[in-house]
Design a binder for these strands. Structure first.
Lengths: 281, 281
DNA sequence: ATGAAAGCGCTAACAC
DNA sequence: GTGTTAGCGCTTTCAT
């Protein structure tokens, strides 16, 4: 049986209120009282019950981070940064995996099962604008396609048709790249919407008996650690995930404190990082 | 303002008790009553407050999963499986990163800050027997060393001295492999205690101008997805993480329900998977 | 089968 | 500066 506030109060011969004040670092408490309380806390090994506190205050101190799959490197690296950023400002993070289930995402957003557990929900969708982002144009693949096409145009290159990957894992990149390599003419380069797809594409090119970058150059997006060690190392567009994580956490913390805080759109720093997979191109 | 049990009771013209019974799927409730309650719940969009429920029952329905770093593939793959296995039996999972901080691990184990939040804690230490496992012999590296040495002996090969990696990431494998390659005589093969170390070692061998497996063969442990796509693909010892996850969750669920349930030691299925990185050896 | 009421541990409004 | 107390939303014992 863990000690309660009441136990501490009795032991220290003070009121429950005073103990609460000390514990919460609140208000004005005389040094004498504070010491008495602190000693009692120590002796009883008292620890505040976060559940009771939550029931009272309405704050759980928890954020949910919604990702498709935690074992996709981009998301696990992001999760690492989010957990750290949240810890900095006193929040803990629970990870929700939606898999490929759009319905699950919408449900989480519209209240779902135990929303009350969280003070806020952080969404990191990849393929799913339908839930969080009613406006399709803001979806990740849409934006990347737009950027790709405008860059092609700027370079005076003909637009090419895109090969859609089924999902976003290595196997999907592998399949899509295979299809691409069978085209006539065969592409000189493959731009993948994520590094993980690129890792699959790399392997597909080798399995087809071709070389990267000599026969086919490859570039991805995300700058996951895996791409720095692959052979060839993967050229990519680096996204500043610590920035994204810290920014998202700061914003949601602000909106929790003030529900009327205005929405903000942030653009994360990003740079092209040329590596071996596009060398000489 | 979300609706409470009381709101539903009023609306349905029944007692709070009856509503609770219906919500918890409990006891005997007449069909007439049940329908009335269900309708009211629907109209008010009532959802049970998990925090209040927890305060009453002492159960949070949450498990903590403690890992060194979530963005290490073995741990993110394990986390995926643990989250799924836990969901199956009605638990949610919170991920705690300890980094390289042994103190943090011990603290979590001995009560730490908000232990009461969790019904149970799942520990997945890699380098840290000190916290969870007072008996050094059970630590992962110790066991792997023992297995390695006994296998060498069985094969009639001379024992070799080991190169300790600083931690467990690619960069650490890279460094350790570099040191190994400078030895005289140079090793014919490198056995890495994890696939991630092996990924770094692979790259180190290439950067030294050597070939895998022709000059140096490499094998890891874990069977992370990355190793199935690397070039060469990585030979490894596959661990059944879904088995581990399901087993751990089942055990902890059992001990939550019955604190006197005996401790159990499980050995997860594991198989050597030969791939390109040891081909012909 | 249903109702009334106590109380989980805490915070904060209200007294003094 | 400190004490008293109501009540957060729920489960559950005790009546009926």
């Amino acid at each position: 049986m863990p000690a309660t506030l009441r136990d501490v109060a009795e032991r220290a011969q003070v009121s429950i209120r005073t103990v609460s004040n000390v514990v919460s670092g609140y208000a004005h408490v005389s040094d004498k009282m504070r010491k008495r309380v602190l000693d009692a806390i120590d002796e009883l090994d008292y620890r505040p019950n976060p559940v009771a506190r939550t029931l009272r205050t309405g704050r759980t101190g928890m954020l949910a981070l919604v990702v498709p799959e935690i074992d996709v490197p981009y998301f696990s690296e992001l999760a690492r940064d989010v957990i750290n950023a949240a810890a900095e400002v006193g929040y803990r993070v629970m990870i929700d995996q939606t898999g490929h289930d759009h319905e699950r995402e919408r449900e989480l957003l519209t209240g779902g099962d135990r929303t009350m557990l969280f003070d806020g929900i952080l969404f990191a969708p990849l393929v799913t604008p339908a839930g969080a982002q009613p406006d399709e144009e803001y979806s990740t693949p849409q934006q990347r396609t737009a950027g790709f096409e405008s860059a092609l145009a700027d370079a005076g290159l003909a637009p090419v048709s895109i090969e859609a990957a089924a999902h976003y894992r290595r196997a999907d990149g592998y399949q899509a790249a295979r299809a691409l390599l069978e085209r006539d003419p065969r592409p000189d380069a493959i731009f993948c919407y994520s590094d993980l797809l690129a890792m699959g594409a790399l392997r597909a090119v080798f399995d087809a008996g071709l070389r990267v970058p000599e026969d086919v150059a490859i570039i991805g997006i995300d700058d996951i650690e895996e791409g720095r060690y692959s052979r060839p190392s993967l050229s990519t567009v680096s996204l500043d995930t610590p920035f994204i994580a810290a920014g998202a956490v700061a914003r949601i913390a602000a909106r929790i404190d003030d529900p009327d805080a205005e929405a903000v759109q942030l653009v994360a720093p990003h740079t092209v990082i040329p590596r071996e997979s596009t060398l000489g191109r």
